[in-house]
Design a protein around this nucleic acid. Structure first.
Lengths: 150, 150
DNA sequence: AACAATTAGTTACCTAGGTAAATAAAATGA
DNA sequence: TCATTTTATTTACCTAGGTAACTAATTGTT
């Protein structure tokens, strides 16, 4: 009948975010906050622009989420040599707690994918990567421009 | 390396919503409003509970969206014989305009899936259906309890 | 009949994501 | 150099989705 791909896509997107939020609740975090922390852990200090470009969201979204993360002590922002940009760092507490959180999220994600074999997971990713290519914006890289792992 | 399934899932979910919103802009609609209208077109008049159960969202979300749809004249709500429930109907104008909108959305969705063959689309749906099954809540039916097509 | 429990819907409040417009710093060009 | 344009970030305001707590109607129980 009709195209249920997008219906299913949105359902699962929401559902998985809900589950991730459930786990993160114990740490006072939300899924999109975690995705920024994850990003910083992986790539080291980043400018806000690097973050939103990597996560493929708009700048104001990242501004807001970073404000919350800074207020709750997960990140720190310092002015760069270019005084327009703000460089974002994980706080020491974040560096300490992140491995544990990451492990819990990974375990959850494994659970959510339990019904899929490894090859099915690869298949799913590659099918997902093929959709929504109509606009140029839809592209993303695996690495941001310059990674500054400390 | 890490599990990129959910990263990809959220990206594409957001991206496709963005594209749908772009098309709906001309009609003063948003994607989740459209999904309710689509639902009403398909199944006829529904109670709010039938709507949120079918769309798999929480009741307050539907309340809010219906309020907007009613204010902008797309739907009408009447009290049922059970005076707790409100029965939702498409307005005459909605019935008139919906086919055109639906056609545009279908064309867009085809475009977003252009890189996938028919069998790949089926594959994608079936893979998506397999994930996030950890909780009982994650289930959904293709039809709500009782369809009242007028 | 009367009280308790369930059900439908709403309200208030939180995060997330988007657009448009503003600000301030840096880069560009005449 | 000084005006213009671009770039990084922010602010204000919109929709979407979630939880918790509330009201009102219905159902169940005694």
């Amino acid at each position: 009948m009709n195209n249920l791909v997008f219906h299913e896509l949105h359902q699962k997107s929401r559902l998985s975010i809900k589950e991730v939020n459930e786990v993160l609740k114990a740490y006072g975090l939300y899924s999109s906050q975690y995705s920024i922390l994850f990003c910083l852990k992986r790539f080291g200090s980043m400018t806000q622009t690097e973050i939103w470009q990597y996560l493929n969201v708009e700048a104001p979204t990242v501004t807001r989420t970073l404000t919350r993360l800074e207020k709750s002590g997960w990140i720190v922002r310092k002015a760069g040599s270019d005084k327009r940009e703000r460089i974002v760092y994980l706080s020491p507490q974040a560096k300490k707690k992140l491995p544990e959180i990451q492990q819990e999220i990974e375990r959850l994600e494994e659970n959510l994918l339990i019904a899929l074999s490894d090859s099915e997971q690869d298949q799913l990713i590659s099918l997902l990567k093929k959709i929504c290519k109509s606009t140029e914006k839809g592209e993303m890289n695996d690495e941001p421009a310059g990674a500054n792992l400390d």
